[in-house]
Design a protein around this nucleic acid. Sequence first.
DNA 1: TCAAAAGTGTTAGGGGTACACCCATGT
DNA 2: ACATGGGTGTACCCCTAACACTTTTGA
Lengths: 235, 235
Amino acid sequence: MQKYSKQTRILLAVDCIIFGFDGDTLKILLIKRAFQPEKDNWSLMGGFVQPQESLDQAANRILKQLTDLEGVYLEQLHTFGSTKRDPIERTVSVTYFALIDINKYQTQLSKDYHAEWFPLKRFPKLIFDQQEMVEAAKKRIRYKAAMHPILFELLPGKFTLPQLQTLYECVFNTQIDKRNFSKRILATGLLIKLTDKDKAGSKRGAFYYQLNMQNYYAKFQAFMNFIPNPDTLSQ
Amino acid sequence: MQKYSKQTRILLAVDCIIFGFDGDTLKILLIKRAFQPEKDNWSLMGGFVQPQESLDQAANRILKQLTDLEGVYLEQLHTFGSTKRDPIERTVSVTYFALIDINKYQTQLSKDYHAEWFPLKRFPKLIFDQQEMVEAAKKRIRYKAAMHPILFELLPGKFTLPQLQTLYECVFNTQIDKRNFSKRILATGLLIKLTDKDKAGSKRGAFYYQLNMQNYYAKFQAFMNFIPNPDTLSQ
DNA sequence: TCAAAAGTGTTAGGGGTACACCCATGT
DNA sequence: ACATGGGTGTACCCCTAACACTTTTGA
């Protein structure tokens, strides 16, 4: 027996929801689709899974194609497989979301794909069921950021507390008291205060911080309190 | 243009991690694989995705095939797609986990598939990468149960507090003080105390409770406190 | 009457939230 | 000098965790 002979093979794609933060607003990176159907309409960056690559490899390849970035935070989100998603031919799509430092993004690469950043609160209609994908990604990022320190992936290596707070406020669409916020964040031991300041945002300037990588990896499981002394809750 | 002509189609399977709770131990339901490769070895229940069904439909079909149950808690977990997972032919597997009331499971159906319940702490070696799938499911169930009242799906309609506590202790592999546990659980408003008792577990008997479905649906988002007044964190 | 599990209340401490003022600096 | 955003401390309250005894009843 060499093959599962009677079974149907299906087209498999990967679509990436790419998040960035410009200091003010959470954004997603969209492209103009280059081929039919829905040519020239706004779409997530995606591509078909190739025979010799894993899903994670496909996602990384697709992300690199558009952003030229490697080693960024990329996590599988959900697989969408309703039979009519793509009108041309049934295609199952495995979605990933990426968190990138928007400053590392090379603007010129956008041209090849006619890519643009759009605020998460106001972006164009997307093809197929991609609207639903973005919604799922938004939920997941909130969900995860509520318990794990993933939002740092959206910031440069050096950042200020006001920047970080704005990011949290964006993601959770809420207002946070800065005194409580800084206490809480600093109490995690995740941050190292640097000696220099960012003078861009104000006259006085705000101190830069960077991640304490030891604590960061150790505490990635973080913030849980429903169950006393659980065995593991990580991931 | 009628097809994405140059792309490779891939075999797509669904595998289900089926959890049950017998009052004492968390268990998973495994079958003896009926065909090559790995014939007669222990495996998750799975099957290929058919051309005219969605992934959710495939998962429900597969679950029903083995358990005859419908409408049970079933959630997509993760999609496994390394190229060498299945030695015969590349197969991407979308995994789902199911939480079922073990009492509703019809033992006789097991015979067709040579199915058996195994304690999550000690189950046989599984085929391919299914060990990893079970690990992922275990993590996910803990993760989710820490914040959402999903464990009720593993219990019958009427259950006692000691039963519920044992279940939590199993899932999180920890010991919980019963006074604090009952206070916390009852404070959620999710439970309705019934007038009759379960006399099976003790001489005195323990009161039955059932879910308050209004509150259950309303509070499914539950237990979060990192961010004050978040917009939404549901899922 | 004894063993085994169910059920219940109090206290102390820590963490969270609410809240207001001073500081540094560029214009 | 003043406007703008950065930075810090305290008090109160609630929630959590720790902890022990009584009740019921079948054997």
